[in-house]
């Protein structure tokens, strides 16, 4: 595992395994996958779309997670992305008004080409996000064309599973290759970015750790 500030190619290896198996974060298949370490940084407060959030968070620590380990596997029909990061104080669910759950997301260019992840896309270059939030293994999928524009997609094929063990979250997000959403053609590289929200720090919305540059994900053969 290497930490780099250059764009990372997360290559997906093809395995013979059912999707249900890949959705197990500790399945033995994941030992076969290459692991890329992606550096994360806090999102800039001055870029938050709400004046209230800018005023409230200008002095608050955020972006506690500085690194995320990413690996991907492909079977004949689906792509699975596994994210793992350090979470010594996990927030496993929204258990109160003032409790926020840990979460993570993978962001794609909606057309699989140019990813404008810093601005959550633009009208000409929409983005698609696959979200997981602790407390529910139901994945959310969002489309966005700029900061504050994210809209949940009502019908999608992304599924998620999670495990917290020894101070780390392990989350798998998976989708059939042939499905509505970002095109995931075999052997194709798609730009991708990552984000992690730390619940105990009050992180939600645009307050998070994110990969400041786009990386590449290569779908397996």
């Amino acid at each position: 595992m290497t930490v780099t500030e250059q764009p990372v190619l997360v290559a997906s290896r093809k395995v013979r395994a059912a999707l249900d198996s890949l959705l197990e974060p500790d399945a033995k298949e994941w030992a076969k996958a290459a692991v890329a370490s992606i550096p994360l940084v806090p999102t800039p407060v001055d870029r938050q779309p709400s004046a209230y959030v800018r005023a409230s968070w200008s002095e608050r620590p955020r972006g506690a997670v500085s690194e995320i380990a990413v690996s991907t596997l492909t079977n004949a029909r689906a792509l699975a992305v596994r994210l793992e990061w350090e979470a010594p104080r996990p927030s496993r669910r929204i258990s109160d008004y003032n409790v926020y759950a840990d979460a993570c997301a993978v962001l794609f260019a909606r057309d699989g080409r140019l990813l404008e992840h810093e601005t959550m896309g633009s009208p000409g270059h929409p983005v698609e996000g696959w979200h997981w939030r602790a407390g529910t293994d139901e994945a959310f999928v969002i489309n966005a064309t700029g900061l504050g524009t994210a809209t949940r997609v009502k019908a999608h094929s992304v599924c998620a599973s999670s495990r917290w063990s020894e101070g780390r979250w392990q989350v798998v997000l998976a989708r059939p290759l042939e499905a509505d959403g970002v095109p995931l053609a075999k052997r194709k590289k798609v730009p991708v970015a990552f984000a992690v929200w730390t619940g105990v720090a009050g992180e939600r919305a645009g307050l998070k750790s994110y990969s400041p540059q786009a990386h590449e994900l290569q779908v397996g053969q």
């Binding site: 409230s56 008004y97 003032n98 409790v99």
Partner: peptide
């Protein structure tokens, strides 16, 4: 200017 507010528990 917005004043930061608290969010009390339930």
């Amino acid at each position: 200017e917005p004043v930061p507010g608290q969010l009390p528990p339930k």
